[in-house]
């Protein structure tokens, strides 16, 4: 049995693994997902209180989130996706502006995403709020 198993590597490379290749496309996709999931986390962490899309965009710029520069549209794509997932809810306010807010399940998801940063993020959030209220 041992002798035959010594052949295993060659045999597997020629059969099972002959079509298996980790390409640069895979790598790129990982990078895309990395960036996106970070933006998603940024957005959700800002939606603890109800906000409109424009407020959100301004806050993200203030935070210096690179991925939305010249590409603010992605915010709405993410908002829509997250709404479908039930992480946020949206509603039209009296002025006819759409507002978004984090739901319980969204908060739970967010917590699971950055368990170690949990307390930090609440603080940071408060700080940002204060700064924002000064400006606007």
């Amino acid at each position: 049995m041992d002798d035959r198993l010594k052949n295993l590597k060659k045999a597997m490379n020629e059969s099972v693994f002959s079509k298996v290749e980790f390409t640069s496309t895979h790598q790129k996709r990982v990078h895309q997902q990395l960036n996106e999931s970070q933006v998603v986390q940024h957005i959700l962490s800002l939606l603890v209180d109800k906000k409109t899309g424009i407020e959100l965009a301004q806050l993200l710029h203030a935070k210096g989130v690179q991925d939305i520069f010249n590409n603010e549209g992605v915010i709405y794509t993410i908002l829509h996706e997250q709404e479908n997932k039930g992480h946020i809810i949206s509603q039209w306010d009296d002025a006819g502006v759409k507002c978004y807010q984090l739901t319980k399940s969204g908060l739970k998801w967010l917590r699971s995403q950055n368990r170690e940063k949990k307390t930090l993020f609440a603080r940071k959030q408060q700080l940002l709020e204060v700064r924002l209220n000064d400006h606007f």
Partner: peptide, 9 residues
């Protein structure tokens, strides 16, 4: 033989 081995594994 190799295929049989891989399959068995």
């Amino acid at each position: 033989e190799d295929d049989a081995l891989v399959h068995a594994v």
